[in-house]
């Protein structure tokens, strides 16, 4: 116990049981959004309340928790959620992907491949991939029921008609096990290939929208595309200016008011460990200490 008058991991036991039942059903029906009785959390909707509730339901005192926001361990959202569980669950935390047993993430999948025994918890703003095409929940539910996903292909086709390619670059829809079309949360489409065949358990929590869904390990996940316009996981055509990695997802940082910019890994742990191994990028400080 943590000194405060909190139950382990903040939520009361009845709430955790409710979330846990939803999680098991979500794993049994990969990609299907299970409604759950989302609770008010001591942070606003949009700050990861869904992910926090899923993490709270999964944590044990033995876990080592990592929290990332757009790949970074040191941004406001990540820091506050990590502190929240340090206080309410007393769990160890880490920034190293390979040492974490539970990773809560906002909008990225870590670059370091995940392993069995790890759980990746996504914060999801809009869980319904069809929502911007059809605003009525009654209709989108029926579309999932009937596997009526033509509208999504029309949307991707309109992208091609207008831009010459599929312009959707994040929250790129996927089909799970040949059945449910699923929103992978707003991860860049660069991360989509890591959704399928992943040895870790992937859980998705949407607090405001009160939905939980999941991908069991080694799931069959296909990014929607066309035979003549196959899916391409794209990234900025650069190397990281700090660690020199050519295969990681990059953030663009404006460095002055005359158009100078640099590209850095969005995954801070990945970038820092590469620098610690001696890799240097174009703008990295030279010498021993990164």
């Amino acid at each position: 116990m943590t000194g405060q008058a909190y139950n382990f991991a903040y939520l009361d036991e009845q709430t955790k049981r409710m979330i846990r039942r939803a999680l098991l059903k979500a794993l049994a029906i990969p990609g299907y959004q299970v409604p759950f009785a989302s609770r008010e959390m001591p942070m606003p909707y949009g700050w990861g309340t869904g992910g926090v509730q899923v993490t709270a339901a999964c944590l044990t005192p033995d876990d080592r928790l990592k929290v990332i926001d757009q790949g970074a361990d040191d941004t406001t959202n990540a820091v506050s959620i990590r502190r929240f569980f340090q206080r309410t669950a007393g769990v160890e935390t880490t920034e190293a992907t390979s040492e974490a047993t539970v990773i809560q993430t906002r909008h990225r999948i870590p670059e370091t491949p995940l392993t069995e025994g790890q759980i990746l918890v996504y914060q999801v703003p809009i869980p319904e991939p069809l929502r911007f095409l059809e605003p009525r929940e009654t209709e989108t539910r029926k579309m999932h029921e009937l596997e009526e996903y033509g509208l999504m292909h029309v949307k991707l086709y309109e992208d091609i008609a207008r831009h010459g390619e599929i312009a959707t670059s994040y929250a790129y829809p996927v089909r799970v096990g040949g059945r449910y079309v699923m929103d992978p949360s707003p991860i860049p489409k660069f991360d989509n290939p890591k959704l399928g065949g992943n040895p870790a358990i992937q859980l998705f929590g949407a607090g405001r929208e009160a939905r939980i869904y999941a991908l069991p390990p080694y799931s069959d996940v296909v990014s929607l595309d066309f035979e003549d316009h196959p899916f391409t996981p794209s990234k900025t055509d650069h190397e990281c200016d700090l660690c020199g990695a050519g295969d990681s997802y990059l953030d663009e940082v404006i460095t002055d008011d005359r158009g100078a910019r640099m590209f850095v890994c969005s995954d801070t742990d990945f970038c820092a460990s590469r620098q610690a191994q001696g890799h240097r990028g174009r703008l990295a400080p030279q010498g021993d200490t990164p």
Partner: peptide, 19 residues
């Protein structure tokens, strides 16, 4: 100790259902 024991038990159930 329900919070801790049920957390461990659920992790076993989650892993079992996932694999």
């Amino acid at each position: 100790d329900p919070p801790t024991q049920s957390a461990h038990a659920f992790r076993a159930l989650l892993e079992a259902m996932a694999r």
